[in-house]
């Protein structure tokens, strides 16, 4: 199997596939927790992860199609199309994260979630016309990626602040660790979005990376894998982990 084909490295497909598997495991676990407890915050979290998972899957499928396609990327780029579509799915996921933050921490109600829904709607509004009318002629869209970065940082920064503050003020060991892990997970997510935006900027403006796939791309996915494990431990608190903490 060749390392690069149609401007796509095989490593990117393998990397993204690993993340899809990890996220799918998390989605199943969170939905199982929802069906056991039937609480709104778990549903919001499960839907957020489902959309992140679908976004990663969409991106992975795009690279897979691009890698094995006989159509040269200069004629039609599957990856550019699916990457933009993945941003739509991530924008939806961010709204569910905002709903999760609201139901657990902030308790502001509809206003808080509506604010992020409107801002995320703008991303979707910017991407959908491109997907419809610029089929086959898509390039890196720095404005969209940057806007998505700012919005995602804002949402995860709120999650990081409220979780770490809760961890600091809490006296119970398990809760302290749980909230600290959720806060750390949020920081990893912020770094992930920074990495993806850096990748987008590097391949657009730096000649050395014009072929695509800067180190920031691989760094971003690595952050997502590590962040997902931390998030899993903090959000789900599996029994074996709680038992380990109690020792």
């Amino acid at each position: 199997m060749v390392v690069w084909q149609n401007k796509i490295p095989i490593s990117s497909i393998i990397f993204e596939l690993v993340v899809v598997i990890a996220l799918t495991f998390m989605v199943i676990t969170i939905f199982a927790r929802y069906f056991a407890k039937r609480k709104k915050p778990v549903l919001y979290l499960a839907l957020a992860y489902l959309f992140y998972d679908l976004a990663t899957l969409t991106s992975c499928i795009g690279r897979w199609l691009g890698y094995f396609s006989s159509i040269p990327y200069t004629e039609f780029s599957y990856t550019d199309f699916t990457t933009l579509f993945a941003y739509v799915l991530m924008a939806i996921a961010n709204v569910f994260i905002a709903a999760f933050i609201d139901t657990i921490f902030i308790q502001k109600g509809v206003d808080f979630v509506a604010f992020f829904a409107i801002l995320s709607g703008i991303i979707i509004g910017m991407i959908v016309p491109i997907l419809n009318f610029e089929w086959g002629n898509m390039r890196s869209h720095v404005l969209i990626v940057s806007y998505h970065l700012i919005l995602s940082i804002l949402i995860f920064l709120i999650l990081a602040i409220v979780s770490l503050r809760e961890a600091k003020m809490n006296k119970k060991k398990i809760a302290k660790i749980g909230f600290a892990l959720i806060g750390t997970y949020a920081i990893f997510m912020i770094l992930l979005f920074v990495s993806f935006t850096s990748d987008s900027l590097l391949i657009t403006y730096v000649d050395a990376f014009s072929k695509g796939y800067s180190p920031a791309y691989y760094f971003g996915w690595t952050l997502l894998v590590i962040g997902s494990i931390i998030g899993y431990l903090g959000l789900i608190m599996p029994k074996w982990f709680v038992k380990m903490l109690k020792l």
Binding site: K40, V42, V162, G178
Partner: peptide, 17 residues
């Protein structure tokens, strides 16, 4: 603020942990 934070612990314990 303190009470609200503890409420967050209660809510996450009831729904997730």
């Amino acid at each position: 603020d303190y009470i609200s934070e503890r409420e967050a612990t209660k809510r996450i314990t009831e729904s997730l942990w």
